[in-house]
């Protein structure tokens, strides 16, 4: 946190900054004004700068959002996205941590399979969507698989890093004191890699959400992504914007929840 400059050298903008930093209500008001100004600019631009066909308008979008909310359509699609993202996340995270532990404990096997894993990791996962749809049909399963694969690699790599970076001295000391291999695993390697696993789990939340939406855009029949894509298919710009706003709302919610849990942990990263 920068301390506000002393008043002798401060310019009007520095004084305004100090004012907003010390008065929370003013900051809230200022921020609300900025957001309101954006919506106002959108409303004015629609029709004036570009036809409402391309830009829609905040009024129409809010009306449609209200419509979706009361008809229950919104919650059905939000629920579908969260179900796919959640199931895929749990599946991918469990397999990823397990695979990371196994490979971390067998460095020689890891050295052999590493290039294969990194090749699979480099493939844009969403490219697998058409394959999964052909093999399993459009629906929940392809979405869950895309999310699971995305999360799997993230957790595999963070677990591997954790096992590699857990304290070597500690491990050697334990060996000297006569710890058995299983004791080393349960008492040193697993606890030592937990911070990495947790940070992987946190990062993966956003990736899981993105992967679910992307899978729905490409190959969904429910979900927020499908809502956006099907509106776009009907040239319904209002529907696209409404879907994107729902997406923004949930993304911000996730980010807020994550930063709350993350604040203390972030310090030692980067």
């Amino acid at each position: 946190m920068d301390a506000p400059m002393t008043s002798a050298t401060s310019t009007p903008s520095q004084r305004a900054l100090a004012f907003f930093q010390t008065h929370r209500w003013a900051l809230m008001l200022g921020r609300s004004a900025v957001i309101a100004a954006c919506f106002l600019a959108w409303e004015l631009a629609s029709g004036a700068l570009a036809s409402p066909f391309f830009l829609s308008s905040p009024g129409a979008v809010l009306a449609l959002l209200w419509n979706w909310t009361v008809s229950g359509l919104l919650w059905r699609h939000v629920g579908a996205t969260l179900l796919a993202a959640g199931t895929g996340y749990l599946l991918g995270a469990a397999c990823g941590v397990l695979a990371g532990m196994v490979l971390g404990l067998m460095p020689r096997v890891n050295a052999v399979v590493a290039p294969f894993i990194s090749a699979l990791y480099a493939l844009p996962k969403i490219a697998l969507a058409p394959l999964f749809v052909i093999l399993f049909g459009a629906g929940l399963l392809p979405k869950v698989l895309i999310v699971a694969i995305t999360v799997f690699f993230l957790l595999l790599y963070s677990t591997l890093d954790g096992v590699k970076d857990s304290d070597r001295d500690l491990k050697e000391t334990a060996e000297i004191f006569g710890a058995t291999p299983s004791e080393i695993v349960t008492k040193i390697l697993i606890p030592g890699s937990l911070p990495w696993i947790f940070s992987g789990l946190r990062i993966a939340v956003r990736y899981a959400f993105t992967a679910a939406i992307l899978a729905e855009l490409i190959a969904g029949n429910t979900g927020i992504g499908y809502l956006i894509q099907s509106s776009a298919g009907k040239f319904n710009t209002t529907g696209v914007f409404a879907g994107v706003l729902v997406l923004v709302a949930f993304s911000v919610l996730f980010t807020e929840l994550l930063t709350r849990t993350e604040n203390s942990a972030l310090r030692w990263r980067v």
């Binding site: 956003r206 993105t210 956006i228 894509q229 776009a232 994107v244 993304s251 980010t255």
Partner: peptide
Amino acid sequence: LYSVPLVTLAPL
């Protein structure tokens, strides 16, 4: 803007 997965704006 940071939170939203921007790739999903493709349809727009």
